[in-house]
């Protein structure tokens, strides 16, 4: 018997998960012409009101110096590679589940970004990118003129 105790909020997570699994079944074009994987790493997006977003990604085992993060207009691109394990005759693999190779992921942002103030850090295998919204794109309050 499988008993699941889940709060209702994770029901959405569950539905998202099913949707991703369905997409995965039908979508095979996740590799670009150069063989780089386009849907790695998985990302989470955190938003704070109108002021900006934080994107986090799980990227264990990456050399942060080889990670390239670019913001062009409203597109954020993360690219890099994960080293493959040594392969020679003395090494015998029993299990190989961790992926390796090149990856490029482009993310369409919801707003233009203040490129000078973008910050990224890499800690414990997790990449965090702070994306402040561009000043000129901030919502402005419009005053309604009243006629006397």
């Amino acid at each position: 018997m499988v008993l699941r105790r889940r709060s209702s909020s994770s029901l959405w997570e569950e539905m998202d998960k099913i949707q991703r699994e369905m997409n995965r079944l039908f979508d095979t074009t996740n590799v670009n012409r150069f063989g780089a994987i386009l849907d790695f790493p998985a990302i989470n997006v955190w938003t704070k009101g109108d002021t900006g977003q934080v994107i986090t990604a799980e990227l264990p085992g990456i050399n942060p110096d080889e990670l390239e993060i670019k913001v062009i207009g409203e597109t954020l691109t993360i690219s890099g590679s994960r080293p493959s394990q040594e392969q020679n005759d003395d090494v015998q693999y029993h299990r190989q589940e961790r992926g390796f190779g090149n990856f490029v992921r482009s993310i369409q942002l919801q707003f233009p970004v203040e490129t000078d103030r973008v910050e990224a850090n890499y800690e414990k295998g997790i990449l965090k990118i702070w994306l402040p919204r561009a000043e000129q794109d901030m919502p402005r309050k419009i005053l309604v003129n009243k006629k006397a």
């Binding site: 991703r20 995965r24 979508d27 994987i37 790695f40 790493p41 998985a42 493959s84 992926g99 390796f100």
Partner: peptide
């Protein structure tokens, strides 16, 4: 032999 990032590997189990 070469198992690269494919979709099944992206998802955490």
């Amino acid at each position: 032999m070469t198992k690269e990032f494919g979709n099944p590997e992206v998802e955490k189990q």
